[in-house]
Amino acid sequence: MTEQQARTLLDVRDLRVHFPTADGLVRSVDGLSFSLAPGRTLGIVGESGSGKSVTSQAILGLHRGTRAQVSGSISFDGVDLLGLPTRELRRLRGNEIAMIFQDPLSALHPYYTVGRQIAEAYRVHHSVGKRQALARAEEMLDLVGIPNAGRRLHEYPHQFSGGMRQRAMIAMALVNDPRLLIADEPTTALDVTVQAQILELMKKLQQEFGSAIIVITHDLGVVADIADDVLVMYAGHAVEQGAVADVFYRPQMPYTWGLLASMPRVENPRGQRLATIAGSPPSLIAPPAGCRFHPRCAYRGLVEGDACVTSAPQLATTEPGHLVRCHLEAAERARVLGNMKDGVR
């Protein structure tokens, strides 16, 4: 157990993030637990509104000073982040834990040059002069593959292309060699070729810096490409989590099946329609009773009685390191999975 702890960089236990609103309490994240070892990559997948981004912001304490209610524990290298005074948390932000945001155009300040923004991230945590920090920024821009870094340093975000902006964002995040990098939908705003380049870059930099990465995405392709472990979120909590290979080859729960089936594949027959998950994400103010996924679940009939509607399933281990939240019997799951594979292949 001690050995386990030593290898854990980030440990999130029973995280809850609730927002009081005029219409009621929005339970964006409702009891989430996961852990991450140094140098590993975790993919968090889910629809919009499933609580992925809220989770990542809770780790950095970005909800502080708002009406959000955060509870549970987030321990980073043995330090409890939720209990940490803001002053000390600030020393970790951007230094030990850095973040990349979805839309780099709105995430970069329009009035400051790219170089200045990267330099600022460096100067906040190092007592160096402006010139030194700018030199460091240039080095980082060069590292993330921006040509003519010395010149582009003095340009503004709107003068960069989308891919270049995201590279600059990454440069800014990595300028302090963080031990944990959180990438919130890092490639969503980019086109496919640039997307591949950015993921390649992140992998390369991970090898170089040895950072742990959390990738938040709705795109399973990204997870397959970059992650070691995956956590599938639905309506504020985990419905399935485990190693990428396990979850992708032996998915154990209808929502994950839906996600996997809705992924375009080269080997799919031409003209075959992509599967979609019927219905829309549930209300986070009054989530469905029982299993939160049940209103949209096509396999509810396979469960005896009305367990799906009345009792909430718990996360349970199906194989070492592979957790799933579902009332379906293991045998039923295996049967459905077998049929699905026959159908697809």
Binding site: F19, A22, L62, H63, R64, G65, T66, R67
Partner: peptide, 11 residues
């Protein structure tokens, strides 16, 4: 009439 006016406060 402005739907954004009840936007949550800053962080």
């Amino acid at each position: 009439l402005d739907p954004r006016s009840d936007r949550a406060g800053g962080r």
